[in-house]
Design a protein around this nucleic acid. Structure first.
Lengths: 246, 246
DNA sequence: CGTTTAATTGAGGAAAGTCAAGTGAAGTGG
DNA sequence: CCACTTCACTTGACTTTCCTCAATTAAACG
């Protein structure tokens, strides 16, 4: 972990995405060349946050964009009734802190200890203006994020609680695979309530869905954060789509 | 209508979005300069489609990107059980046809008569590589679309049918306002079933929601495609957020 | 080891989905 | 121009599902 951090630190930012044009079998890869990473690294400082530490709040003046080195972030909004809605979970290689009219559109909080590059928007903007290649990579990353968000919307359009949870597990599995990690076990870095807020359902419903999946022998959990898929066929059937696609 | 078409045709593509950095009071504006429009126009041909005509299918090789001149498009996917899920409605100034691994990620169909610029991806890519300003505008548009999609996800996370329908109407109203059209009346170019598929609920539920809103005196419909908001306070209250924000 | 926070489980009620029938609108052909 | 056919939409009755409230158990932290 410390090792990985130092490596990333030394070589500069990593932006992971799927190429919108070339075939890549669902794998994400690093978009930036060594040279680009170096040029970007000089703009950035490294920011660290503790678990559960707030990074920024919705509506605050957006002065920086972040790129995750290690750790997991949740992006969320507070509904007028005080409830939280999670819009995305962000992992190493992801970018967050995009703004609208100069203000952050969601809040962001670290849900694990976090290390991230911090880019002042002004510096980043002028760098972008001079570097068409880099701009192109930003476009690729944005298209990638757009797809992920569409996927989230697709998930939320699902009626059944089981479908949603299964799609969510698929999502995590794909992300893990995309980062090149082992996928025999799925790791859930977030709480049940966070899952519920991401899936648009109560945490009780999430809990019940896990129980149902376990009792049907579809998944098996080592502890509350680690589980294995023991019946892939039924799993994919509940998900209802051909897993790896998109 | 014919007039607008000719104007757009003469001057080239229009890409509407909110600026991610400057304040713009929720208004979208044209991102491209006259010069850029001219440079883009030479790459494009104009494609026309009839109402209900399919433009492309999910998974097809993505050879072109489109920019709407007039008309409305729905982007959708067919779920494995045969049901349709609408991911977005697209209006004049919007871009569609983004791909992943060289393939369209959704299908697209015209829901009104449609005129659109058609850009071959190869030509567009090489044009982009030479034009940093244009790339920047593409980035702005993508960020804008990302927000819209997040908004859609946020909408889908809502529990109540009324909330969803009201948020949907807000969305249409904002889009109309952003395009500079009159907003005394909201125009719904799509069918009830399309609305249902966008909102993740049955068309019956949509119908019932409209009835409830009408009977409570919150909206008043001239016909099935035109309605007015007669009680803005209650309307915004049901939507639950401060309307114009984001 | 005790306290706090996270997660599970159960019972009851509200809400939307499904099925099915009926009404209204639009487009077609005589 | 009108009758007929078709498609879009509305409305009702019934069923399923998940949310809410509340009580318990399990895990994490000092």
């Amino acid at each position: 972990m410390a090792r990985a951090k130092i490596r990333a630190n030394t070589h500069g930012p990593v932006i992971r995405a799927r190429d919108p044009w070339a075939a890549s079998a669902g794998k994400t890869h690093q978009l930036l060349s060594e040279e680009e990473r170096a040029r970007l690294a000089v703009l950035a400082s490294i920011a660290r946050f503790n678990k559960d530490e707030e990074i920024y709040r919705e509506g605050r003046r957006a002065d920086a964009v972040f790129n995750i080195i290690t750790g997991v972030v949740k992006a969320y909004r507070i509904a007028p009734d005080g409830s939280e809605r999670i819009t995305a979970f962000l992992f190493p290689g992801d970018v967050f802190g995009l703004s609208e009219e100069g203000k952050y559109t969601n809040a962001a909080k670290a849900i694990t200890p976090l290390a991230a590059y911090r880019f002042p928007v002004s510096a980043l903007r002028s760098r972008l203006a001079k570097d068409a290649d880099l701009e192109f990579h930003v476009i690729c990353k944005l298209i990638h994020e757009l797809r992920e968000t569409q996927r989230h919307a697709l998930l939320l359009a699902r009626r059944g609680a089981l479908s949603r949870v299964v799609m969510f597990l698929q999502l995590l599995e794909n992300l893990q695979a995309g980062r090149g990690e082992r996928t025999v076990e799925i790791y859930l870095p977030m709480k049940r309530s966070d899952i519920g807020e991401y899936l648009g359902m109560s945490l009780e419903a999430v809990s019940r869905a896990f129980r149902t999946l376990t009792s049907r022998g579809i998944i098996k959990s080592r502890d509350r954060r680690h589980l294995k898929i023991t019946d892939r066929n039924t799993f994919d059937e509940i998900a209802g789509d051909t897993a790896s696609a998109s």
